[in-house]
């Protein structure tokens, strides 16, 4: 238990961010028409692709002889990028269709 508290104290700023982000996420989403559930889910899916940043850091810090880290990190970069790029493109394709109807 003590370890948990000391960890939180050391990461106090981050803990604030976590708590505020939770409320923010709830607030931002609460009033969304059901039409947009799918694109919104897909958009959120793309946003959690930020893990890619972690993958880049892992990759960039791996030493040259550590093949396990290099290979896994490389894989992580690929997977993360697919998540980000694919996620945003799919979302855009879904929303494109709403748009075409609007201009008409």
């Amino acid at each position: 238990m003590e370890a948990v508290f000391s960890f939180l104290e050391q990461h106090l700023e981050l803990t604030y961010i976590v708590i505020l982000s939770i409320f923010l996420g709830v607030e931002v989403i609460s009033r969304v028409p059901s039409v947009l559930h799918t694109p919104l889910m897909s958009g959120a899916n793309a946003i959690h692709g930020v893990v890619i940043i972690g993958a880049i850091i892992v990759m960039g810090q791996a030493s040259d002889e550590n093949y396990l880290a290099l290979i896994l990190g490389f894989l992580a970069v690929i997977l993360g990028t697919i998540n980000v790029v694919g996620g945003f493109v799919v979302t855009d394709r879904m929303l494109e269709m709403f748009k075409s109807k609007k201009t008409k």
Binding site: L24, G25, V26, I29, L40, M41, A44, H48
Partner: peptide, 12 residues
């Protein structure tokens, strides 16, 4: 990004 998606995703 992560927490935002976590909480928004839960609400969704």
């Amino acid at each position: 990004g992560g927490i935002l998606v976590g909480s928004a995703g839960t609400i969704l």
